Amino acid sequence: MRKAGKSLRQVLEAYGISQNKLAIAMGIGRSTIHHWVNESRDPGGDAILEIRKGLNKLNPAAAEEFIRLYLDESEEDELVDRE
């Protein structure tokens, strides 16, 4: 499940936030953001909170949208219904 990366990509695109800007706000390397956004790596639970904090520094609405998308269970419900 790469839901965090997918949610993050959607928010960055919707709010015009670059991976580099978020990386700077979080104090981490851009390559880490790149791996999350391209779903080659999943952020851990602590990282989810740090993503929210970083987004909140740049745009509080983006932070709220990220959490909303990440916690949205409708996509998971669809997968369960198909099985």
Rank of each mutant, 00 (worst) to 15 (best):
E83W: 12
L58P: 02
I17C: 04
W36K: 02
E64Q: 13
N59K: 11
D81S: 08
I24D: 02
I48M: 10
L58T: 12
K6T: 13
A25H: 06
R9P: 03
R68D: 13
I48L: 15
E65D: 15
T32S: 13
A4C: 03
A14T: 11
D72M: 11
N38R: 09
A62V: 10
R52E: 15
E83T: 10
A63S: 15
E83K: 10
T32A: 14
R41M: 12
L22T: 00
T32G: 07
L69C: 04
R82T: 10
A14K: 14
A62E: 06
L71Y: 06
E13C: 10
A25F: 09
Y15L: 06
E78I: 12
N59W: 00
K21A: 15
A23N: 04
D81N: 05
E78M: 14
K6I: 14
E75C: 00
A47W: 02
M1I: 06
L12H: 02
R68M: 08
K3C: 04
S18V: 09
G45P: 10
A25S: 14
P60W: 00
L8T: 05
A62R: 02
T32V: 14
D81F: 07
E39H: 05
L58E: 03
E65G: 04
Y70C: 09
I33C: 08
E64S: 12
G29N: 13
V80N: 06
S7R: 01
I33G: 01
S40M: 03
